[in-house]
Write a protein that binds this DNA or RNA. Structure first.
Lengths: 109, 109
DNA sequence: AATTTATGTCGTATGTTTGCGTCATAAAAC
DNA sequence: GTTTTATGACGCAAACATACGACATAAATT
């Protein structure tokens, strides 16, 4: 028994992957922080969240793996920010999916 | 050790909850099916997906618990369809979140 | 050179999700 | 009234996610 996700359509898998990224409040909070504080804070992120530095680092790693966040090393600290190109891509996926309700003309229940 | 999700903002938790619903291709596929086939299919859903009936039923249950899908019993079969009101609500949450990239004026990395 | 600081990596415990077979239920058909 | 059919509920195993302490690394400060 294992993840059968690969048997779905490419587009569905991609959207599910993006959704998974947003499926934890910590990752949403991180993205919002990065959007607000343009100053590309680094470890300060952990201070603003109710989680240990280790855990935050892990969530950040996930966002980085998905290319939604990029970090550049600046001496001792690391400067993180959103990857706007990838964010736009994700946005497009969600918008396309969320538009399907307009197809529905007659509800039967 | 347990889910610390409750320590985040209400809005972040709610969005994360919606995202979790969409974080599996099966649930995305179900939603898309329901949107396309206005005829409120019931167990046929399982036939269209690469998963057992049991598993599909479980995913459907999750969508129903979140009020995104409703089902009305019609004799032996059950007629499912999207709850458009809840779908709109979800859509709004995502749209609001996905707009944050417009706040970003100068990227530093 | 030793210490401090910012950060990542590893290991591990606990919790959650996924997937499915089997059983239960209740309407419909016979 | 028995059988068939459509469905949900239960229980379990495997996989995955979450959370964090302890350790490692490497730049900056002393």
């Amino acid at each position: 028994m294992y993840a059968k996700t690969t048997e779905f359509e490419e587009q569905q898998q991609q959207l599910a992957k993006y959704a998974k990224l947003l499926s934890h409040p910590a990752r949403i909070a991180i993205i919002q922080l990065l959007a607000h504080k343009q100053t590309c804070i680094s470890g300060d992120i952990a201070n603003e969240l109710p989680l240990s530095r280790t855990t935050v680092s892990q969530h950040l790693q996930e966002l980085k793996n998905a290319d939604l966040v990029k970090g550049t090393i600046d001496g001792l600290t690391i400067c993180y920010c959103l990857n706007l190109v990838e964010f736009e891509k994700m946005k497009h996926f969600f918008e396309q999916f969320l538009a399907i309700n307009s197809q529905i003309t007659n509800q039967c229940c």
